[in-house]
């Protein structure tokens, strides 16, 4: 039986797992954005937050993902086997790139522009919303893009804690020494990562082109 025939026989399963995969990536990235962007903006206002928060996110990043999934399992409430544990770990991994790009994006704003914004009498909130966030947007967005692409890869490993997704095919393939199963999981996962990267890159360039089209 050729690989294509093998795929043809299992395409509904593969499609279902792909969908599950996408849902896990979307949920964890959106949650990551909702936490990391406000936190990153807070760091630009309260610099004392920077070291502990970025430090924590950095340490998480250094923990191998399989180990982090494993470490979360015995924890009460958040742990256990299943997609909930996986999502928590995925969100933790999404934090660092988004946090870092939010902070650098805001810090990179031209000081002359900030001086003019202060000098014309903007409140801190106005400066944030009218000047700093719009100008940091491309950087924030590229952080989100990195987090998404990394997330697609991490979700395959999350199958180890029973999260589902294309990783379950890969793990099954490994256990049964069946390379066809392995590829049936790995190839769609790689395609997803490429599509996510290209799609978000396209969105990003449109965002830059239309940035702040007349806001009045």
């Amino acid at each position: 039986m050729s690989f294509l025939e093998f795929l043809a026989g299992r395409w509904t399963e593969i499609l279902g797992l792909t969908l599950e995969h996408v849902v896990l990536v979307v949920i964890s990235t959106v949650a990551g954005v909702l936490i990391a962007v406000p936190l990153g903006l807070a760091i630009t206002r309260i610099p004392a937050l920077g070291r502990p928060v970025l430090g924590f996110a950095g340490v998480i990043q250094t923990v191998p993902s399989l180990a982090l999934f494993g470490l979360l399992i015995p924890l009460p409430f958040i742990g256990g086997i299943g997609s909930r544990t996986a999502i928590i770990a995925l969100v933790l991994y999404a934090l660092l790139p988004i946090l870092r790009n939010t902070v650098t994006g805001v810090r990179q704003v031209d000081p002359a522009i900030l001086d003019a914004a202060n000098g014309m009498g903007m409140t801190d909130w106005q400066r944030l919303t009218l000047v700093e966030v719009p100008l940091a947007l491309p950087s924030i967005f590229s952080g989100i893009r990195i987090a998404t692409v990394v997330g697609v890869g991490l979700v395959t490993i999350a199958a180890a804690v029973g999260a589902g997704g294309l990783g379950s095919l890969i793990f099954r393939g490994l256990a049964m020494l069946d390379s066809r199963l392995l590829f049936a999981g790995a190839i769609p996962s790689a395609i997803l990562a490429l599509l996510a990267d290209a799609g978000l890159a396209m969105l990003e360039s449109r965002l830059v082109a239309s940035r702040g089209a007349s806001t009045s």
Binding site: A112, I113, L114, A116, A117, G119, M120, P134, L135, G212
Partner: peptide, 17 residues
């Protein structure tokens, strides 16, 4: 500040507006 005009070298125009 809103009652006093302010213009600087490098101008500080907002590039997205």
């Amino acid at each position: 500040r809103r009652g006093i005009g302010y213009a600087i070298q490098g101008v500080g125009l907002l590039p997205h507006l």
